[in-house]
Design a protein around this nucleic acid. Sequence first.
DNA 1: TCTGGGGTCCTAGGACCC
DNA 2: TCTGGGGTCCTAGGACCC
Length: 420
Amino acid sequence: MENLIALVDCNNFYASCERLFQPRLRDRPVVVLSNNDGCVIARSNEAKALGIGMGDPWHLNKDKFDRHGVVVRSSNYTLYGDISARVVTVLRGFTPELEVYSIDEAFLSFEGFADPMAHARKLRGTVLQWTGIPVSVGIAPTKTLAKVANRLAKKGEGRDGVFMLTHQHEQIAALEKLDLTDLWGVAGRLAKRLAELGIHTPLQLRDADPGILRQRLGVVVQRLALELRGTPCHEMALSVPDNKTILASRSFGRAVTERSEFEESVASHIARAAEKLRRQKLTAGAVMVFAQTNQFRTQDRQYSASRTIALPVASADTLVLTNAALRAAGCIWREGFRYKKAGITLLELGSASKVQGDLWTPADTPRQRALMQAMDRINAEHGRDTMRLAVSGVKRGWTLRSEQRSQRYTTSWNELLSVD
DNA sequence: TCTGGGGTCCTAGGACCC
DNA sequence: TCTGGGGTCCTAGGACCC
């Protein structure tokens, strides 16, 4: 069987974690609350049966929870992260290729296994035995179909929490049981736009013309439809990529009107974000601060704003340059109305281009040498190994920012290159 | 009074450049 | 100096996921 993917999903993960160490919570409705005990983010099956919804605010439901004897827990992410790692360790024993998709889900390549169902059942039993966490397994040729299979496994289709969708007729039968918004990647807005195109069911989406989907709704929806047909569009990501953003945010919990209090909050959030950044051994290319008013107070005028400050940052062997800078350095030249890039591997990194440090060695021109010397000089002045050359909109002018004090230097290109 | 926090990817549109 | 077309860069925002 080619390209079989298993999605392993922990059942009611946070609630299951709480139960591990509190046996008295077994068979009782359990909910786990978000950071500030604001709203429900996990529910045991018993809690779901009481009609408690994902995201239900606690302060509006306290009475109901009391009435039904619901056990309410604050979240403990350290604990959940630890148990998640244990589950992943067990899963690694069942496949050579695994993608950790979220704290409670992983995609496993089941390619080449003689009896995937038996393998999955064994996996499920082992995870439960070794970690105490119940999981469901969905198996299919694509990630999107594996999600579908997993969903049905949770609903009791298949056997022992395992459900497989290998044949087309099975896939079609499965899709007939779902709504559009049950699909991975379809929420309310998209469902509405699909409906405008006359697509109301997962099966209709599966059989829609991919070219028209692409044209009308974008590449994401096109991929989704192809995946539903069994054509993989999402590769397995075997290693965990570096974060592209790190966010530290909190709701205030009450109205903040004093500037000083606001500033204090911003400072502490930035400190927390920076801690995460250092723990992951990353550097930041920019800092963004945002704030918004309480969207639930619809009687109030709403406001939101954000500011971003670019930081000049690069690892020791990487320079971050814009194309304009490369062009100026003679690495990119113009031919007619076309630009050509000379022997450079340009990796798109956000909207800047990331250029490997050895770029300068093979293509060594006087202009490039001058640029490097100029940058060296400025770096030396500010005690940095590397710096970013940012191109401002000033005519024939370039803005350099040192990392140290975010100072700005505006100078002409020729002035920059006049190295003494 | 109290309504989460942390992510990813894609697209549209304007400024700017040559 | 004018011209037009096309590319890049940047920002904001939408949409979705867990």
